[in-house]
Amino acid sequence: MENVSIDQSIDARGSACPGPLMELIRAVKSSKVGTVIEVLSSERGSINDVPSWLDKVGQMLIGIEEVTSHWRIVVKKVK
């Protein structure tokens, strides 16, 4: 994922409410097709919640990586 160019970054670390997935949904809705969005989350649940939602709405998960005390989830809006 190091070579992926990020268009928008959401630092949702420490964000209890509305939380990383809600922030991602907001970003996906307001972005153009082709936008690559990175979400930084300190919630372990995000590594399951985000892929589940992407699967339901047909958007692309580029990858997930654990970085020290948080997770970096990279997503592409494809439709």
């Binding site: 209890a16 409410c17 939380g19 997935l21 809600m22 939602w53």
Partner: peptide, 10 residues
């Protein structure tokens, strides 16, 4: 609700 529970806070 938009995410996989009924409120953002678990």
């Amino acid at each position: 609700y938009p995410i996989n529970r009924v409120h953002a806070l678990e």
